[in-house]
Every structure is written in structure tokens, then in C-alpha cells.
Amino acid sequence: MTAIDSLDLQVPEGAICALVGPNGAGKTTTLKVLMNILPATHGRAEILGVQSTHLSPRTFAQIGYFSENQDLPDWMTLKYFLAYLKPFYPNWDDARAEELLHQFDLPSNTKLANLSRGMRAKAALTSSLAYRPRLLVLDEPFSGLDALVRDELTGALLESADGATVLISSHDLSEIESFASHVCYIEHGRLRFSEEMGSLTRRFRAIEITLPHQPSLPVSTPATWLGIETSAGVVRFVETDYERARTHAAVHRLFGDVEVSVNPMSLREIFVTLATAGKKAA
């Protein structure tokens, strides 16, 4: 089975890049190939300028990886776990670890097995942030966690993100929208687009046209229009390449002199539009 195919993706240094796509799109596989947890049958992945199959311990010590299903050594206490990791990371910062433990309100003498799901996530993130990684790879870090824990994790992450590069896959789109600088949309193992958050939210608009009569859909509509729906007196669609003059001209050409209402969309709405269109096309 091919999980990812022709996936050509570059994450600029210093970006907080959100890897977004339906379940089974290939996000986790992509991250695992990057981290050399899975071998790629074709192509290559580079990380911090080094091919990921040739990562040296020195490079590896600058990368933080955290996934939702991460195994932790359950028999260790958190304190023991951090002490165990420390020698592997030349940049380990005790003060930062201490600060995170305090901020997260983590009990350092409890065995990892006895921590709640939220606390395990915080413990895992602490163990990655304590060495101030240059690159953080996070696979669904928020899944199954309550809103408060998600908030705390995001806060700690952003505090550490200044200057670091973050690659994060997540379905918590309303959260990611406020802090990701770039969005990569993956579907069926392919990269559909990769662009800056600002340019993405600028080009998507929900359009609603009010007609004086029952609408009849024109035979062909611009390829950039998705999810066209009609109901009594109204046509709705999503313009994926919005530019005021161009979009209005296309509407007027097809529907005559009608009232057009243009509304910005959240990342979540954009995702639902793309995922629905992708399902129809498949």
C-alpha cells in the first residue's frame, strides 16, 4: 500500500507549519518518514539540512518529537525520566525543565504509569522542550485532551517556539488557526497545497448570491468554485481563489446583476470545504 506519493513539502526555518488533512491522508506517515521511524521506499526526506536516514546523534539532539500514542517508560517517575534523558542532550536546560514542571503543575515523584492522559502529554512535552530543540515535530499532540490542557500545551509550545521551527499535525483547527504561520494540506498521500496562513484565509470566501427567481445552475462554473448549492432564491459556494473584482465579474456574467454577499472563513470551514470536495472527487 502506498501511504504517501509525490509529496513534495518544504517547511521554512522558523515557521510553525500545520499539517492538515482528513484521517488516513498520510500525515503521520510523513512525519514518521521525516523522523526516520519509517523508511521511505522512494524519495528522500531532509531534516535540519541532513538526510533523515543519516541523522547523527548531534542532529537528533536538536529535534523534539511528540506523538499522541507515544510510549513512555511507565515504571519511571517523571523526575527519573528527565534525569535519564538529560545526558543525551547537550543543550539540556535544568532551569527550563523546572519551569515547565512548575507551570504544568506536574508531580515529579509519581510514576508515569499513574499520570492522567493530560499529565502524560505535559510530561512528554516537557521532556522535549527542556533541551530547547531547533525543530519540534508534533503528531496530533492535542488529541483526546481537554480544552484547558490544550491551552497549557499551546502556551508552553509558543513560549519555546520563538526561533524554533515547528511542524505539527492536528485536527484542532480553531486552535491552530491563531498560531500556525503556514498550512500544508495533505489528501490521499499527496500535498494539495502548502502556503502561508494569511494567504490561505485571504483566498477562501463563502459567497452567497440572492436571486429574484428560482436559480438554475449554469452548465459550467469556474473551477475555483467549490460546493455549489442552491435553494429557493439563493446560490451558495466557496470561492477558493477570491479576488473581489474577478469573483464579482464571474458572478455577474453567470447570474446577471444580483446581490453578492462575501464572508471570510475560518480554517475549520476551509477544511470542511476541501475535505468534502476531495471525497466527491475520489
Binding site: 510553525i16 491551552d151 499551546t154 502556551g155 508552553a156 509558543l158 513560549e159 520563538d162 491563531s178 498560531f179
Partner: peptide
């Protein structure tokens, strides 16, 4: 500070 704006409002440090 940049750090606390980013941390508390959950926005990108660059923003």
C-alpha cells in the same frame, strides 16, 4: 512582552 503575548493569546511569536 512578545513571549507573554504569544503564550497567553496563543498567537505566533512572529505575530
Amino acid at each position: 512582552s512578545v513571549r507573554s503575548l504569544s503564550k497567553e493569546l496563543k498567537i505566533n511569536p512572529n505575530t
